[in-house]
Amino acid sequence: MFAGIDIGSSSSKAAIIGDDGRLLSVSVHNQGAGTDGHRQALERALALAGAERSDIRFLVATGYGRMRYEGADRQLTEISCHAKGVAWLTSGARTIIDVGGQDSKAIKLDAAGNVANFAMNEKCAAGTGRFLEVMARVLDCRVDELSEIAAASVKEVPISSVCAVFAESEVISRLSSGERPEDVARGAHVSIARRIAGLAGRIGCQPEIVMTGGVALNGDAVACLSKELGHEVLVAPHAQAIGAVGAAAFAWEMARAAK
C-alpha cells in the first residue's frame, strides 16, 4: 500500500492507495502543521483501509508542513499533488483552484494533466480560508455554517476591504448599521471569489475548472466563484483531501518506477 499525507496550515489529510492503484481511504483531521494532526489523520486513513503503518511501502508528504515530516520517503509540493490527485480521480480538468486555510493557488494543467503554470496568493489572508474564518467569527457561526447562512441572503453586502483585518472592521460596521448576517455572509463569499478570480486570471483560466481545498466544501462560495469566472466550477471528489490523494498517487508511481 501507498500513503500520501498533506499537512496544511489548518488541517491534516491522509490517503491510502492499494497496490492496484485504487483509492482505499481518505481522512481529514482538523489540526495542521505544528500539531500531531498528521499522525491522527494517517492513523484514521490506515484504520479505514484496514491497514497498519508497516503495510505502507512508500509515503509522500505534501503541504505546508511537508519539510518537517520525518516519516516521508519524498516531499512534494501541494501544487504537484493537487494536480496529480485531480488527474487520478477525474478527467478533463485544465484549471485547478485550490483554496486552503492559508494559501490559495490557481494551477494551469496541460492536456495530459501535468502542471503547466501556477500562481499563488501573496502573504495576505485575502482570498484564503482564513478570510472566511475571520468572517465566521464576526458572524458568530462556524466556518462550515457560512454556506447555509449565505444561501438565505436576499442581497449582497459589498465588502470592499481586501485585507482580512480591515474587512473584519467593515463587517462589524455593516452589522451595526442593520445589515443582515445572511447578506454579509454572501458579501464575504463574493469578496473571496473576486480575489480568487484575480489569481486565476494570472494563469489564464480555462475550463474545466475544478476546485479543491477546504473552501470547496462551501457551496455558496463555489457558486460565487463560478459567477465571477463566468464558468461552472466543479468540486473535486475528496476536495479537501485531494492533495493527500495526489501524494499517495505519486507514492504509488514512484515505488513502481523504482522497481
Binding site: 505546508y64 519539510m67 515530516y69 516521508a72 512534494l76 509540493t77 501544487i79 494559501d103 502542471v115
Partner: peptide, 26 residues
Amino acid sequence: FEQIRTRVQSFAETLGTAPLGVRAGG
C-alpha cells in the same frame, strides 16, 4: 520562507527536473 520554498519546488517539479521531489530533511 515556506511560501517561497513551495514556489521554487513547484517550479522545479513543473519543469520535470525534480520528479522525485526532495528527500526527508530537505
